[in-house]
Design a protein around this nucleic acid. Structure first.
Lengths: 259, 259
DNA sequence: AAATTAATGTTGTCGTACAACCATACATAT
DNA sequence: ATATGTATGGTTGTACGACAACATTAATTT
């Protein structure tokens, strides 16, 4: 490839905006020893002059820290570091989701959860929830018949099961994970649509899950879900990895506009 | 008359600062249908006049949305809704963690994870990781002998196991959950310290876990972890709920104000 | 001594101004 | 005709000043 004349540019932009940099700096401070939980940060004015930026920038940075629960501001008094890190959320950095390995690590998280979720759903599901699960199962076939690969319906199916646990955190967490593995599911289901044997395999596994939930057989439900997860990752592994690696810099989702 | 898409927000929150309220409103907008992923929000100026607040407030709200990954701003161009919600973190609202029921829902999440974590740890642990786990187990006794209830060491023990899975997300998630159930663990271990039979029960359960990990017996590890979790919740249930409801309004950690 | 008031500092909000940047349309040159 | 340069308006990023709302402390009064 014709290379440009060698030129090095040293950090054209050291980082993003000033607010971004100050945010990072403040996070460092709150996690360091200088400002332990409960202590008060310097005033916005003094920090502004200290960092050499305007008070506006400081306020935007503090606003982000408040959003992440790291600090708490009291008008007239100051900004205080919050106790504990109960307020800092659980995140997965999307920028590291480029490799198959990273995606499979998230899938592994889901695998760990799905067995217990299905078991709890079998134990606690109401009639209405069971009906919703069955309806979601049918919806998968409907979508597939209409030409889609059925990823949305597949996710809805598992979402309904998570709802049936009665524990809202299961639903939140599963939905959070789905955001990362959706693209993998998409390609997996796309591949399965070309392999009737695999497609039938998936349908059978789903059926066993629903049966166990219907009969409220906790252990059978757990086993069925685990079997389904194992099958999913086995089927996913059998796909040419090339299909998975074409996600550019954190943008995993495709336009997805089939017509 | 500047014309921008008609957008409506259900109801401005009546409490909190203006930036708080506008943040909620904007979150609703980005999740609604008026501004699908990829679309551009109205300019800060027009939103300021639309909401009847200054541009500063709008900017602070947008700053929080950027921090949560909901939007992305491009200087000179505008603020755009990001595709997917892969960037929005998983949170548990600390303000609802006042009731025992809420804490047990989080514990249930941990129960679901711990079995698979221990199984994976047994499968993949290195010698060094096994040593770290054993060391953490000893540390529990050390802390107890020194008068502490040993919660910190107990958490470290399970953290080491999560590390041995090789999947960093397990560690992050478990640590996140520990923030919420730490107070429950504290009272549980405090109660166990007055009941030598229960304390021994816990030690035995821990030993079985470590043995299974040492022998790399995956199924035994899973069973041991599940048994430990069942035992923990059983022991927790046997405590007078009065002891748990003492920590109210999200302030679980002690003030810890040395002067 | 206690209660009240004043003073001072801090966060919350507003407004203006300008810089940096982008997108488009337009004009110019090759 | 195509490509390049330029003007222009709109948008975000940053700065500064001003005041309101509120908290804390010091000073004053009772």
């Amino acid at each position: 490839m014709p290379s440009f004349p060698e030129f090095k540019v040293e950090r054209l932009t050291v980082t993003g905006s000033l607010a971004d940099r100050v945010t990072d700096a403040l996070i460092q401070l709150t996690k360091g020893e200088d400002f332990p939980p409960g202590s008060r940060l310097p005033s916005e004015m003094s920090m502004a002059s200290r960092f050499g930026v305007s008070r506006t920038v400081i306020r935007e940075a503090i606003s982000r820290l408040k959003s992440d629960g790291l600090v708490e501001s009291r008008q007239g008094s100051g900004v205080f570091v919050r106790e504990g890190n109960m307020n800092t959320p659980f995140r997965i950095d999307p920028s590291i989701m480029d490799s198959i390995h990273s995606i499979q690590q998230v899938i592994e998280l889901r695998k760990a959860l799905e067995g217990e979720i299905t078991a709890l759903a079998a134990e606690r599901r109401s009639k209405a929830q069971l009906a919703a699960i069955k309806q979601a199962l049918k919806q998968i076939d409907t979508e597939v018949r209409d030409g889609s690969v059925g990823t949305v319906a597949d996710i809805t199916f598992h979402r309904r099961i998570a709802e049936a646990t009665g524990n809202p955190h299961f639903l939140s967490l599963i939905e959070f994970l789905f955001n990362f593995i959706q693209s993998a599911m998409q390609t997996a289901r796309g591949y399965e649509s070309t392999r009737p044997d695999l497609a039938q395999e998936v349908k059978d596994e789903h059926l066993v899950i629903v049966d166990a939930i219907a009969k409220q057989d906790v252990e059978a439900a757990r086993a069925a879900a685990r079997h389904h997860m194992d099958g999913s990752s086995r089927r996913l592994d059998s796909i040419d990895p090339q299909n998975l690696s074409r996600n550019n810099s954190g943008l995993i989702f495709k336009p997805a506009s089939p017509k």
